[in-house]
Design a protein around this nucleic acid. Sequence first.
DNA 1: AAAACGGGGGC
DNA 2: GCCCCAGTTTT
Length: 203
Amino acid sequence: MEIEKVAKLIIKNFPRDHKEKDPFKVLITTVLSQRSKDENTEIAAENLFNKYKTPFELSKAKEKDIYELIKPAGLYRQKAKRIIEISKIIVEKYSGIVPDSLEELLKLPGVGRKTANIVLYVSFSKPALAVDTHVHRISNRLGWVNTKTPEETEFKLMEILPKNLWGPINGSMVEFGKKVCKPVSPNCKICPISKYCKWEGKR
DNA sequence: AAAACGGGGGC
DNA sequence: GCCCCAGTTTT
């Protein structure tokens, strides 16, 4: 199947390694990463975990206590509120253990399909597709799907991609999307999978 | 379906 | 000055 071959090429050429596996840290970092660039997310996460290391500690913090720490990631008032609420729920309802099911993760404030699936893959090594704007755009450009919404793309991709590629393709598509297959003026000249691409706008 | 949330960096 | 960024929730 050609799709599988191309997916593996993307994964090989645009690796994204997740050093941190701790479910709580991955969960909080991923919430911080929403609509934020990686560099700023990392600064915010480092600031935060430097002071609050566990859900137990963070659940006792006040929102205003962490504004300055997470400000680099943006949307900081919302995120502060949600992060502390998440910590309280993890402590009170789950005894400090982050749940490992999509259904339970989606109940947490500020956790949608993308965030939940990233946690499932990165921390729990489960097959999970996090379809963000990059994955959505690139899947359509390649001609793998013909969809309007990311959720539609998610279900289509689950049909055409083998499960063992669900996790790895997420991060690799993001890197691919940032470096080469950009939203505007993509760099098709240096694209390693250009010959498999059906996008009409390609140059 | 659209608005709101937001600092930081690229242009 | 304007626009975007591993989105989600509220209106």
